[in-house]
Design a protein around this nucleic acid. Structure first.
Lengths: 375, 375
DNA sequence: AAGGCGGAGTAATACGTATGACTTCATCGT
DNA sequence: ACGATGAAGTCATACGTATTACTCCGCCTT
C-alpha cells in the first residue's frame, strides 16, 4: 500500500508472484517478447483484483513527463469557455492526460474569507496568471492569452481562436478592427515561439459572418448595422472584416458601425445609436449573442418589433440564444470541438509531429429574429 | 535540470554551494535552529536566481499527499458551475493545491475525431465519471454527485449544495418535491461516509425563496404560480417547500404548481399551463433563471405584458437575468463563494479539523420583472 | 584534559514507477 | 557436444524531494 492508501505495483507483483519490474512491463504494454502471455494474464488479473492504478506522480518522475497540460483561458465564468474545457479534457483523458486550468486573475471578484492555514506553500504564484503550480507538458492557450504565452517559451503550445498565425504582438493603439491593414496577420508574422511555429485551431468566423450577411441580403436587407465588440482580438477583427466585405458585395448595401463592450447595457446603448440615425438600419448584426440581447433591449425601448421592424443576428449560439424571445438567428461556433481539436493538435505536437492548422466551420442557425424588412 | 527542463533542488544546492538537503530544509521552512540565517538567505537567493520551483510530483511521492483535490460537477457547460470552479481553484491555489475536475460523462455531445495515437493509457476510466486518473487528497462534490461519491469512501469529502446533511440515498420514485416527508433530510440520516460526517456548504435557498414570496406578497400578489424544476435535488425540494410555506402564510395566498425540465422550451409549456387556468396567477415564481426565460416566452405568446399583467421571478442570477427584457427579479446565489467556501472547508478537513457547516445567504435582486398586479 | 552539548550542516534513504543491463534456461544449428 | 540464440524474467538504478540519522566542530563544564 502506498502512503496514499492505494495498492502499488509492488503489491500487484506480490499478488501475482512476480517481480515489480514484470508488473511494470506488462501493464506498460511493452512486454511482447519479454513476458509470457500466461504471466501477463495473471499480472493483469492481480492488478484488477487489487484495483491497482499507477501513481501518475511516480511515473512522471522517471519519464520526464507529467501527462498534464495547461489550459489558459481568461475565465471559466463566461458561458463560452466551459465547453472548451469540456472538449479538451475529454480528449486528454482518453490519452491519459490531465488538464489543469489557469485563468486570468481578475476573474475573481467575490470576497473570500479563508482563514484556513493549511500547509505552507513557498511558491507563491507570481505571474499574471492564477495558475496551479504544476509541471506541465504543454499549453493550450486561448487567444486572449497571447502575451502570457511568452512565459512558456520552451513549452509546446497550441493557440485557440487566435487567427491563422500568431500576431506579432498587441495591435497598435490606433488600429481599428476591420481595417484590413497590411501585415495584419500575414504569414510573415513571428509569434512568440518563432516564425509561425505555434499550431492553431480557429473558427471559420469569416465564412460564418458571410453566411449571416448573405442570409440578410437574401431577405432583402440593404441598410445593415454592425454592433461590434470593442475588443482587440483576431476573431472580432475577422468578423468585422468579413462583414464589411460581404455587405460591399451586395448592390446597394450600406454598412454602419457602432462599438461597445461585451455586456448587455453597453450593447443596448451602441445599438440605440444606430437605431436613432436618420437612415436607420433594417438589420443589426451583432458580434455575439450577449450583444444581440442588448440590441433587443434597444429595439424594445423604441417600440420596434423583432423581426417585423428590425432583424437582429448574434454570434456563438450560447444558451442565451434560445432563451430570448424571439429566438436568435446566430452562428453556432462549436466551442467544445475547439477544445477537443486543440487538445488533439497539442497531443500530436507532444508526440513529435507538426499538426496542420485546423479551422472549424461555424453553422448558420436561422431562428425567429430575422425576417424580410418591412417595405 | 530536471527531465522537464526545470531546475531542481540539486541545481539550487550547487548554485548556493550547499547540499540538496539544506535547500530542502530552507525552502521547506523548517530550518529554525538547523541552518544559519546567512546560509538560508543565500539558498533563497539562489533559488530565486534560477527560478526554482519544487516539482510537486516528486514532493508527493514522499509525503503521501498529492496536493490535488477533485472537483466533481455534473458539467462545466452550464453557466452555474464555472464560477464554482473559479472560487474553489482560487482558494486551492492560495494553499498550494491544484484542482482537477471530473464531469459527468454525458456532458459530452459533440463528435470528436481524434486519430492521435499518443502514448497508451492502460488505465481506462471505468466509473460513471470521466475523470483524470489522478491521485487525490480530497473531493469537493456537487450535489448531483452523491452516489458517485461512494467511490471515494476513504477520501475526505465536502458536499456542495446538498442540504444540511447528506441524504441517505436517492429519493424514492414517487416522492414529490416539496412534500416535507418525514426523514427527508433529517439529522438522523446516514450519508455514504457515515452518520453526518460529510461537511456541507449550502445556499440559504429557503430564505431566498421566502424573500421572493414576501416581495410578491408585499406588491399585492395572492395567486402565485410555481414553475418548478422536475429535478430530484435537495435545492429544488427546499425551494418548493419554502415557497409553499411562505405562500401559506399570506392571508388569501394560493399556490399552483407546474413541473418542467430545466430548458426554455419545457419551461414555456409548463408556464403556459398555469397561465391558461381559469384562475390565472398574477405572478410566476420560477425555479431558476432559464425557466423564467421560458415563462417570458409563454407570457409573450399570450399577449401578456411583464410586469404589467404578470410578474415573473427567477433564481440564481446568472448572466441571462440581465439579458432579458425586462431584467429579471431573482435571487443571487454566490456560486463562486460556494466553491471558495467549499474548498476552505475541505482544506480544514485535510488538516485534521472538522469544519462547521456553512450556509451562504442568497440575495434578493429586484429588477424590472415584478410589479403590483393589475387590479 | 575528558566529556558533554548545541549549532550547522551533510549523507543516506524512502517514496513508486520505468527501463537498460543482466541472468537463467531451454532449444537449435553444426 | 558445444557455443549461439532467444525467450522469460529479475536486478539495479534513476527520477526529485523530504526527512531522519548522523558527522563535525567549537565551546563550556568539571
Amino acid at each position: 500500500m502506498s502512503a496514499l492508501g492505494r495498492p502499488t505495483s509492488k503489491d500487484v507483483a506480490q499478488e501475482a508472484g512476480v517481480s515489480q519490474s514484470t508488473v511494470s512491463l506488462v501493464l506498460g504494454g511493452k512486454w511482447t517478447g519479454r513476458v509470457s502471455p500466461a504471466t501477463a494474464r495473471s499480472v493483469r488479473s492481480a492488478a484488477e483484483r487489487l484495483g491497482y492504478r499507477p501513481n501518475p506522480a511516480a511515473r512522471n518522475l522517471r519519464l520526464g513527463t507529467t501527462r498534464t497540460v495547461l489550459l489558459m483561458v481568461p475565465t471559466l465564468t463566461a458561458p463560452f469557455f466551459g465547453p472548451v474545457y469540456t472538449g479538451a479534457a475529454r480528449v486528454a483523458a482518453r490519452h491519459g492526460f490531465g488538464v489543469v486550468v489557469a485563468t486570468w486573475p481578475d476573474d475573481t471578484n467575490g470576497p473570500v474569507e479563508d482563514a484556513c492555514p493549511g500547509p505552507p506553500s513557498y511558491t507563491p504564484p507570481d505571474g499574471p496568471f492564477a495558475s496551479p503550480d504544476e509541471a506541465i507538458d504543454g499549453v493550450l492557450a486561448s487567444s486572449m492569452a497571447v502575451e502570457a504565452l511568452a512565459r512558456f517559451r520552451e513549452t509546446p503550445a497550441v493557440m485557440l481562436d487566435s487567427g491563422p498565425s500568431i500576431p506579432a504582438g498587441p495591435t497598435p493603439r490606433g488600429a481599428r478592427p476591420g481595417a484590413p491593414g497590411p501585415g495584419d496577420h500575414g504569414p510573415g508574422d513571428h509569434g512568440p515561439h518563432g516564425a509561425g511555429l505555434v499550431p492553431t485551431v480557429d473558427f471559420g468566423v469569416a465564412e460564418g459572418m458571410r453566411g449571416i450577411a448573405e442570409h440578410l441580403a437574401g431577405l432583402g436587407h440593404r441598410r445593415i448595422g454592425h454592433v461590434a465588440a470593442a475588443v482587440d482580438q483576431w476573431t472580432f477583427r475577422a468578423r468585422a472584416r468579413a462583414l464589411a466585405a460581404a455587405v460591399a458585395a451586395v448592390p446597394g448595401g450600406v454598412l454602419s458601425r457602432s462599438m461597445c463592450a461585451i455586456d448587455a447595457t453597453s450593447a443596448k446603448n451602441a445599438a440605440g445609436r444606430l437605431l436613432d440615425r436618420a437612415d436607420r438600419p433594417t438589420a443589426l448584426v451583432c458580434d455575439d449573442d450577449l450583444i444581440a440581447a442588448g440590441a433587443y433591449k434597444a429595439a424594445r425601448a423604441r417600440g420596434l418589433d423583432i423581426p417585423g421592424d428590425l432583424s437582429v443576428t448574434g454570434f456563438d449560439d450560447v444558451l442565451l440564444a434560445t432563451a430570448l424571445e424571439p429566438e436568435l438567428t446566430t452562428v453556432r461556433l462549436p466551442a467544445e470541438e475547439l477544445g477537443a481539436q486543440g487538445m488533439t493538435a497539442l497531443l500530436e505536437l507532444l508526440s513529435g509531429r507538426r499538426p496542420a492548422p485546423r479551422v472549424l466551420p461555424g453553422e448558420l442557425i436561422i431562428r425567429g429574429s430575422t425576417a424580410p424588412p418591412r417595405t
